[in-house]
Amino acid sequence: MKVLFSSPAGHPQGSWPAEARAAEERKAGNPDAEVIMDRASDDFLVVIGRTPKEQ
């Protein structure tokens, strides 16, 4: 799994910045870009390449 972008969960716009970045990544050719919540860091992450074990 590769992290492309990170946005704090406490951001005033919530997950929107991460969702927008994931949409940009998908449009740019990374169809598996997705947003996940990392509870340890309290961040929304845009990631690619998650394995079934990581999901």
Rank of each mutant, 00 (worst) to 15 (best):
E54H: 12
H11V: 00
V46A: 08
V46W: 08
W16C: 11
G10N: 11
S15R: 15
R50S: 07
A33S: 06
N30Q: 14
P52L: 07
H11R: 07
P8A: 03
E25V: 01
K53Q: 15
S7Q: 04
A9R: 10
G10F: 06
V46T: 01
K2F: 06
V3F: 02
V46S: 09
E34D: 00
A22R: 08
G14C: 04
Q55A: 09
V46K: 06
K2M: 01
E34W: 05
R39F: 14
P8R: 02
F5S: 04
E24Q: 08
K27H: 02
L4R: 05
R26F: 04
R26I: 02
M37T: 13
W16H: 14
Q13E: 11
R26N: 07
A9Q: 12
G14I: 04
V3N: 07
A33M: 03
G14T: 08
D32W: 00
R39I: 13
P12V: 00
S15T: 10
A40V: 14
N30P: 10
G49S: 01
M1Y: 06
G14K: 08
M37F: 15
V47F: 10
P52T: 09
P17I: 04
R21Q: 08
K2Q: 12
P12D: 06
E25S: 10
A28T: 05
A28M: 02
T51E: 13
V46E: 12
A20L: 14
P12F: 08
A23G: 11
G29N: 03
S6K: 09
Q55V: 04
D43A: 14
V47Q: 13
N30E: 15
D43P: 09
A33Q: 03
P8G: 00
D43L: 15
E24R: 00
R21N: 01
R50V: 02
P31M: 06
V35T: 08
K53P: 01
M1V: 07
D43N: 15
G14A: 07
G29F: 01
S7A: 10
D42S: 14
R26L: 01
D43I: 10
S15M: 13
M37Y: 15
A22T: 10
M37H: 15
R26T: 04
R39Y: 15
L4E: 05
E24M: 02
H11C: 03
D38F: 09
G49C: 05
